[in-house]
Amino acid sequence: MGASKKTKARSATREKLLQAAAQVIIDRGVEALTLDAVAQQADVSKGGLLYHFLNKNALIVNVGQQQLQNFEAALQQEFEQDDAPGTPGQWTRAYVRSAERTSKESLALIARLSSILVEMPSELLQSVEAYEQRWHQRLESDGLDPVQATIIQLAIDGLWFSEAFQMAVPREERRTQIVETLLAMTRSPQ
Rank of each mutant, 00 (worst) to 15 (best):
K56T: 02
R28G: 07
Q90D: 05
Q65Y: 02
V44F: 05
V44E: 05
L113N: 00
L33Q: 02
N57K: 10
V118A: 15
A99G: 08
G47L: 11
G29Y: 04
V96D: 08
L35Y: 00
T92C: 12
Q65N: 15
L75I: 07
G89F: 07
A58T: 13
G47I: 09
I25A: 02
F79I: 04
N70C: 04
V61E: 08
W91I: 07
L107T: 01
V30M: 06
T87I: 06
Q69H: 09
V61I: 15
V24M: 03
E72P: 06
L117R: 11
A74T: 08
A74S: 11
A39H: 06
S45Y: 10
L107G: 00
Q69R: 14
A37Q: 05
A108Y: 00
V24G: 01
L49N: 03
V118Y: 15
R101D: 10
L35C: 05
R97N: 13
H52M: 04
Q40K: 14
L35M: 12
A108L: 02
S115A: 09
E80H: 13
L59N: 00
N62I: 01
E105T: 14
K56I: 00
I110T: 05
D43I: 09
V63I: 05
Q76E: 13
S103N: 08
G29H: 03
V30C: 08
L75T: 03
A73L: 06
S114A: 11
N57C: 04
L68F: 01
T87K: 14
V61D: 04
Q81K: 13
E80P: 06
R112M: 06
V63L: 04
Q90R: 15
G29T: 03
D43H: 13
L59T: 00
N70Y: 07
S115K: 09
A108S: 11
A32W: 04
P85E: 02
L109W: 01
A74M: 08
G29N: 08
A37K: 02
L33T: 04
V38L: 02
S115E: 14
A94K: 05
Y51Q: 10
N55M: 04
Q90L: 09
A84K: 13
D43M: 11
I60N: 02
Q77C: 12
S114Y: 12
Q23M: 13
V63P: 03
Q23G: 12
A99C: 12
L75R: 08
G86T: 10
Y95S: 11
V44I: 12
L54Y: 11
V24C: 02
L68P: 03
I116A: 07
S45R: 12
L35E: 07
T102C: 09
V38P: 02
K56W: 00
L59D: 00
L49Q: 01
E31L: 11
I116Q: 10
S103R: 07
F71K: 00
Q69I: 06
A42L: 06
L50S: 02
F53N: 01
G86P: 07
V118R: 15
Q40S: 14
N70M: 09
V96Y: 07
R93S: 12
Q65L: 03
L113M: 10
R93F: 06
Q40E: 15
S45H: 10
H52G: 03
R101Y: 05
Q66I: 01
E31D: 14
W91L: 09
E78Y: 12
F71D: 00
L33K: 01
L68R: 01
S103E: 04
Q69E: 13
T102F: 02
Q76I: 10
R28S: 13
L50Y: 10
D27W: 07
T34I: 00
S98P: 09
D82G: 08
A94C: 08
E31T: 14
